[in-house]
């Protein structure tokens, strides 16, 4: 069995296990999630299944955008959250919610993610080394945070403020199949764009000029990834708010399974991101806290230290992946 198949089977098993666990486990203990009684059916098929699917798809979109951005910027620390795409997407959605046009939230999130994606690529293109890229991301994220605060500040309906702030923390609680469909479409479109950039990402592993010299259309690759990552991160954030570090963690885990080739990391990173987030969502539901821990908060609590660890290891190797 080839390495790619082994990786696929492993990640598929992990994903199925995560989805099954999320049907079984939760605050209400169920002995048989497939039982015919009305309460169980509602809990499993109308609450837990849409939520689990949303978690998996959001994780997949974030994992895929992270892997694509890492290939484009040639940096294993790139991720939609770290680079500010998620923050900008949240800003777009917050503006839509705060000004009473919530049906525009997914579109606004994707458009704002696109702006951030174009900005960070333009700024980070010439930046070498993980530190400078992370700093650009910090700058953009803080800027997005400031703008979100401004939007909340100027929002015409202050009563909705608490809900909005809560929403930006990142969660898939109470999401419907409709939400899952929104991320699913964004992931499909973004994934198709990124798929066409895969060979270009391999070429970019030689550096920009050498990539052009072996025949890669570097501008096309850059455009495809900027659009694809924005669609993925925008769709994910529109539905679930800001959930950071999945895009760093998923490709990092997959490299151990299938090596460092940026093209071969793409779909495994999506599957790993999906499985990670679906499992993390089961985890936050099982924690015995009075208020459910937000998925975005949990991701930051686990992902932050992981990010620091990868960054420190990179720095120790002189910035080489």
């Amino acid at each position: 069995m080839s390495g790619a198949w082994r990786t696929f089977l492993l990640l598929a098993l992990l994903s199925v296990a995560a989805l099954a666990a999320s049907l079984w486990l939760g605050p209400v203990a169920l002995s048989d999630p497939f039982s015919a009684d009305a309460a169980t059916r509602t809990i499993v098929w109308e609450v837990r299944l849409p939520r689990a699917l949303t978690a998996w798809l959001v994780g997949a979109a974030l994992g895929l955008s992270g892997a694509a951005l890492q290939g484009l910027l040639r940096n294993p620390l790139a991720d939609a959250g770290v680079l500010g795409l998620s923050g900008f997407a949240a800003l777009g959605a917050v503006i839509a919610f705060a000004f009473g046009v919530s049906f525009l939230a997914p579109t606004m999130a994707i458009v704002f993610a696109l702006i951030a994606s174009a900005l960070v690529t333009a700024l980070a293109w010439a930046a070498r080394g993980p530190a400078s890229l992370a700093l650009i991301g910090v700058g953009l994220s803080s800027f997005a945070g400031g703008l979100i605060a401004l939007a909340l500040n100027l929002a015409p309906n202050p009563g909705a403020l608490a809900d909005l702030v809560n929403w930006t923390l990142g969660s898939v609680e109470g999401r419907s199949l409709n939400d899952a469909a929104i991320v699913g479409v964004a992931l499909g479109v973004g994934g198709a764009l990124i798929f066409f950039a895969a060979r270009g990402l391999q070429a970019l592993g030689l550096g920009e000029e050498a990539a052009a010299a072996i025949g890669a259309n570097v501008n096309r690759t850059r455009l495809l990834v900027v659009l694809g990552a924005a669609a993925c991160a925008g769709g994910a954030t529109a539905v679930a708010g800001v959930i950071g570090f999945v895009g760093v963690a998923a490709p990092h885990l997959v490299r151990a399974l299938s090596g460092h080739d940026p093209a071969r990391l793409l779909w495994p990173s999506a599957m790993a991101g999906g499985a990670l987030l679906a499992l993390a969502d089961v985890g936050v539901r099982l924690l015995p806290t009075d208020t459910e821990l937000k998925l975005g908060v949990a991701a930051a609590l686990i992902g932050g230290p992981l990010f620091a660890f990868i960054a420190a290891r990179l720095a120790a190797r002189g910035g080489e992946a």
Binding site: L206, G207, A213, A321
Partner: peptide, 24 residues
């Protein structure tokens, strides 16, 4: 020429070639 057609005519080894990812 497009990058591809140029690459079919001439190969280039830059002064400090990079291998960003540790591929084989």
């Amino acid at each position: 020429l497009s990058a591809r057609l140029r690459a079919l005519r001439a190969a280039y080894l830059p002064q400090r070639p990079q291998a960003v990812w540790p591929v084989s």
